[in-house]
Deep mutational scan, measured.
Amino acid sequence: MALNTPQITPTKKITVRAIGEELPRGDYQRCPQCDMLFSLPEINSHQSAYCPRCQAKIRDGRDWSLTRLAAMAFTMLLLMPFAWGEPLLHIWLLGIRIDANVMQGIWQMTKQGDAITGSMVFFCVIGAPLILVTSIAYLWFGNRLGMNLRPVLLMLERLKEWVMLDIYLVGIGVASIKVQDYAHIQAGVGLFSFVALVILTTVTLSHLNVEELWERFYPQRPATRRDEKLRVCLGCHFTGYPDQRGRCPRCHIPLRLRRRHSLQKCWAALLASIVLLLPANLLPISIIYLNGGRQEDTILSGIMSLASSNIAVAGIVFIASILVPFTKVIVMFTLLLSIHFKCQQGLRTRILLLRMVTWIGRWSMLDLFVISLTMSLINRDQILAFTMGPAAFYFGAAVILTILAVEWLDSRLLWDAHESGNARFDD
C-alpha cells in the first residue's frame, strides 16, 4: 500500500549564491595573561575582544583620537594649579581661619623630617597626573615632529594605576569627618577644581587605549598563520617573532617567553612588605597634641575612634588600611606557593584573586592621604596640633611594595603550573 505524501511548494523562490571570495581570516594573537594562541577576527570600533580561555580583555573598544586626548590633557593642565594650590577646605580653629590644600599637606610631611613619605604622596597625587598630561601632550606634538614615541607609550600603561586623584578625593571626605570634632569646616574653591580634575582624569584614563596608539604610530604586520613560536610582548602586546637582537619589532624591548626574574622580584617585594606591615600596624601612625597632652593612634585605634562619629567612614578606612593590605599579602603568598608547588586545582579562583588584588591594591594609600591633609588643617603649635607617627613611612612603603609585587608577577606562570593543553579552566 503506497502512502500519498503531499508536496510542499515554497511560496518564495530560494536563491543560492556561491561564495565568490575567501572568507576573511583572523590574525593570530597570544593572550598576555595566559599565553593562549588564538585567531582574533577583525574588530570594529566600539567592540571589545576577550581571550577565549581566561576571559582577559585583549582589545578595548573604547578609543579616543589623539586630538581629543590632547584637549583633555590641556584642560587638566589648566585645572591643576587651582586643584593643588587653592584651598580645598576652610576650618575655623580657636577663632582663626585655616586653609588646607594639597601642596601644603605634602610640605608639612616633608617639613617634619619625613621627606620619603611626603614624596610618596607627591608622586601619586601630583607627579603621576602631571606625567600623564605631559605624556599625552608629548605624543600629540611628537607625532607631528617625527619624534620617538616608544618610551612614552611604554610608560603610559604602567602609569595608570599610580594616578590616585580619586583616592585622594575620598581622603578629603575622611579628613573632614575627623577634623569636624575640633573645628567648623567649609569647602574651599580649590575643592571644585579638584573634583573637576578627578572627573576629567577618570574619563581620560578610561578612554586612553595605549594598544590602539601603538597600532597608529607603529603598525606591524600581524601573524596570519598559526605558529607556536609566536611570542607576545608584555610592553606593547604585539604578537610576532623577535628581531635579530631578540627584541620586539614594535617597542624594541627584549621579547622573552616569560617575564625575567618574575618570581624572585615578586618574592622579594612580598617578604619586604610583610616585614614592614608589622611596625606599620604596631607603631603610632598619627599623633595629636591637645592642650599640651599627647595622644597617639595606631591604624586600628584611629579607626575605632573614627567609628564613634561615623561608622560608615570608619568601615571604608578599615577596608583600605587593614583589610586590603593583608588580603593582598595572603593572596600573593598563596599564588606564589601554588606556582612553586605546581598546583593544578582552583586555577579559576587564583586568576580571579590576582585580578582582584590588581584592582584594589592602590586604595591602601588612602590613610597616607588623610594624614597629609589633616596635617595641613590642624597645626596650632602646642594648643592643638596633628602630626604623623613613625608607622606612616612603614605603611606607605608596604603598600608600594605590594603594588610592585602584583605588577611583577607574570600571570602566565600560573598556567605553566597548571596542566598543559587546557582550553578551559575551572575549579
Rank of each mutant, 00 (worst) to 15 (best):
D367A: 00
L277Y: 01
A269V: 08
N143K: 15
V313Y: 09
M120H: 03
G188E: 13
M1D: 00
A314K: 04
D63E: 11
V370F: 10
Y394I: 01
R144E: 10
F425Q: 14
A268K: 01
T201D: 05
T349L: 14
P6L: 04
G292I: 12
W363T: 04
T239C: 14
C124F: 15
V331L: 10
T204W: 03
R30Y: 03
S372G: 15
S273Q: 05
D367I: 00
F393N: 06
G421K: 02
V324Q: 08
V133Q: 04
T358C: 12
H261N: 10
H418T: 08
H46N: 07
F217T: 15
S372H: 04
A272R: 00
I8Q: 10
A397G: 11
Y241P: 10
L277I: 11
Q345H: 10
S301F: 09
A71I: 09
L154F: 05
A312F: 12
R412S: 02
I351S: 12
P249Y: 12
D99M: 09
E22D: 04
I311G: 15
P24V: 04
I131L: 05
K178L: 00
P390E: 08
S305T: 13
L335Q: 11
I287A: 05
W64Q: 07
D243E: 13
M304K: 13
W64M: 10
G292S: 12
S364V: 00
R245H: 10
T202A: 10
Y241T: 02
R68N: 02
C343G: 12
V399L: 07
I330H: 10
E21V: 06
M72P: 03
L277T: 12
T327F: 09
L156W: 13
I316G: 11
N101V: 01
L94Y: 01
L94W: 02
M388E: 05
A223S: 13
L300T: 05
M120V: 04
M36F: 05
V232F: 13
R231D: 09
S65H: 05
C124E: 03
R256K: 09
I58P: 01
W408N: 04
Q7K: 10
R260T: 07
G235N: 06
L257T: 13
L401Y: 05
L153D: 00
T327A: 13
D227C: 14
L290H: 03
L290I: 12
I43N: 10
V125R: 00
V210D: 14
E161Q: 15
V102N: 04
T5W: 06
P390N: 00
A307N: 14
S376G: 04
E157S: 15
M332C: 09
G173V: 12
V324C: 13
Y182L: 15
M164R: 02
G105T: 01
L368H: 03
L353V: 14
L169D: 01
Q112T: 08
L335P: 04
M120I: 06
I253E: 15
R362Y: 02
N148H: 03
F82M: 11
L159D: 03
H46F: 08
G61N: 12
D63R: 15
A71W: 10
P10W: 07
P222T: 14
S376V: 13
I131C: 11
K57R: 05
Y138E: 01
I8N: 09
K12H: 07
T204L: 09
G171F: 00
R221K: 13
A183K: 00
S45R: 09
D416Y: 12
H261V: 05
L197W: 08
V121Y: 04
I287C: 09
Y218T: 10
V370M: 01
R158Y: 12
F326S: 10
A312W: 15
I319F: 14
L257K: 12
I311Q: 15
S321I: 03
I319T: 09
C233D: 03
L373W: 02
A128L: 02
L404I: 14
